[in-house]
Design a protein around this nucleic acid. Structure first.
Lengths: 345, 345
DNA sequence: TTCAGATATGTAAGCGATTTCATTTATTCT
DNA sequence: AGAATAAATGAAATCGCTTACATATCTGAA
């Protein structure tokens, strides 16, 4: 008469479930679950039996069923704008890295800088019952964020926003822009052009403000003709600088609202036979990885974007687990490279 | 005495489920499900009632429950190596775009060019019961891929592999490298260096082969001292070119195994006071977005990587739905920009 | 030995959908 | 009007797991 707890010959269905494992190992489903989750003590005898059956049957727990039962999915949504963005990409990597080992998995979705898309993606994420959401900038209004926060914990970057279930994390764009402009002023430039970002982009607005503030602090009058608006992408930078050159306003330096614009500017200037930094200094914003490999390497403001991803993920996980977490970001930093130089008199 | 089908006052729990919607709307859960999925005819009367309650209660179907019941999650796994890769990023975007509107959602996971990580991520994806997986290159062996294909349909890029439940999609790296090298030969170069990729990277190997083939076809002897191995990243390009320069072998052109290496090469050359393309021509491989904004803009081989993402996603969805799909990719293309020039005698 | 108190294990009720099958209601045709 | 057929609806089982509760087994102290 065989012991009840001994493994038994049982016909194994194609779809191996926890119940099958239990039956084959000669224990109850509850026991298998407990072993899997470590939620209770189990005798070594059964544990070994179960673990070996799991291996033998190549059992893979169904995360859906688990999520349904637990009311928790161990996944968080990351609402970004463009999965291939060189800028936010770093943040995504930060999120991923911070999540590795926590058993949580990120679900990325792109809003394409389009409110409707963004709302749709958010709904999608909520449908999948993510345990929390990281919103990287984007176009959702503060009110919408607060509203979603009734459903799920949220960490949002690129704005200041407080409320129950919401943590916000932002880089000081104003300060960064001030630093960039100040750097040029320190090096003797007074005719400093600015290639701004989209007029409705919060980061672009703050950077423009920082630029103006630095000028003002230095007693340099603001000249609207030295400002051109672009779109945060390379081609826009080309267009903007061409426009500035065409206006025949003289300037000895350009502060670009982001690195990608700066790349376009550098290329366009070289096409015009204008040397960087000898004729015109260029300063960017972001410090993308490739910026240090531009010819000449780009002077820029480093944004702690990877750290931002990490911090966002950590803060969110903490919030999900009901733990307090102080989410703060390092300040932007001026990285001086070869694209800017002392103005020669 | 109220009609049974009229909306009724019912206390609404915090968690709105399909069952709650049904009760409030005065219909059965089955009916609500049918309306949601369009799986059967429902009278207009009930349909309106249900739809309005859904809106009123702000009901959001639980994707987990749905997945459990249907045995299908409407999600596909995308196993990439680095979520922030400028190269694969384009492919990810392609996947996302192709999926938009199909109701499917991509789940991205990064393997970090590390077999163990990759296996772990794959298991994770399978646990979440994705309906299919796209494997972007990576380190899994063909045998492993075929094995996973027993569980789930797979589209794999960067290799040729056929089998049940597997579609492979690859760019002709050999041909591309041949084209790049041939371009330099056509322009009179005979001393052509090659900065290769990692020696164990399949793409790098094929590109090296293509380079050698082109030389051979032109009757130019292969000189191993003109080949330096790098790591597909910018700093590696710098190191490699420095090494080549230090060897004092003369050469008039460099074919870099990818664009990122080429960036490093361009920077290092400029630091040495060597002009591109006047002294040395540089050709890359990939055609990353920024390549056309390098100074000088980089001559390179365009890989249809976005198209690859799109094709992979379409092929996978077709496979999931049991539809035949002819997955083919455009050939690599030579993009001539300013970093290469005719060799002056 | 025996019994109280741990410790280990099992039973069964959810979790929130879908779907089969049976039943009720509405049409159509004679 | 009444039978036969089609359309609409509902009841209940199911998907694969977790977990509260009940039960069985094992300690060691009396």
């Amino acid at each position: 008469m065989p012991h009840n707890s001994d493994p038994v010959e049982i016909d194994i269905p194609e779809n191996v479930t926890l119940e099958v494992v239990a039956r084959v190992a000669g224990v109850s489903p509850a026991t298998v679950s407990r072993i899997l989750n470590g939620t209770a003590r189990v005798s070594d005898r059964k544990r070994t039996a179960v673990l070996s059956t799991i291996k033998r049957l190549n059992y893979r727990p169904n995360a859906l069923a688990r999520g349904l039962a637990q009311g928790r999915t161990n996944s968080i949504g990351v609402l970004t704008q463009d999965i291939a963005s060189p800028f936010y990409g770093e943040a995504l990597r930060g999120v991923e890295d911070a999540l590795a080992g926590t058993g949580m998995i990120p679900l990325f979705a792109s809003g394409h800088w389009n409110l409707q898309d963004e709302v749709e993606r958010m709904e999608h994420l909520l449908s999948r019952r993510v345990d929390g959401v990281i919103v990287l900038t984007g176009k959702l209004s503060d009110a919408q964020i607060l509203d979603y926060a009734n459903t799920v914990p949220i960490v949002v970057t690129g704005r200041q926003l407080t409320g129950p279930n919401v943590i916000s994390l932002s880089v000081d764009n104003f300060l960064g822009a001030q630093m960039a402009t100040q750097h040029l002023i320190d090096w003797g430039h007074t005719r400093i052009a600015h290639v701004a970002g989209p007029a409705d982009h919060i980061d672009a607005i703050n950077r423009l403000r920082g630029y103006r503030q630095a000028l003002e602090d230095a007693g340099i009058p603001f000249d609207p003709d030295l400002v051109a608006h672009a779109d945060f992408h390379e081609p826009g930078g080309v267009l903007a600088i061409n426009q500035l050159l065409a206006s025949r306003r003289s300037f000895t330096a350009v502060f670009a609202s982001n690195d990608q614009s700066a790349y376009g500017i550098q290329l366009a200037l070289s096409r015009h036979g204008i040397r960087v930094p000898d004729d015109i200094s260029v300063v960017g914003f972001d410090d993308l990885l490739v910026s240090s490999y531009m010819v000449p390497p780009l002077t820029t403001i480093r944004q702690p974007v990877n750290e931002m991803g990490v911090a966002a993920a950590k803060a969110l996980v903490a919030m999900i687990n009901g733990i307090a977490y102080d989410a703060s970001l390092p300040a932007p930093e001026l990285i001086v490279r070869a694209s800017s130089r002392l103005l020669r008199r």
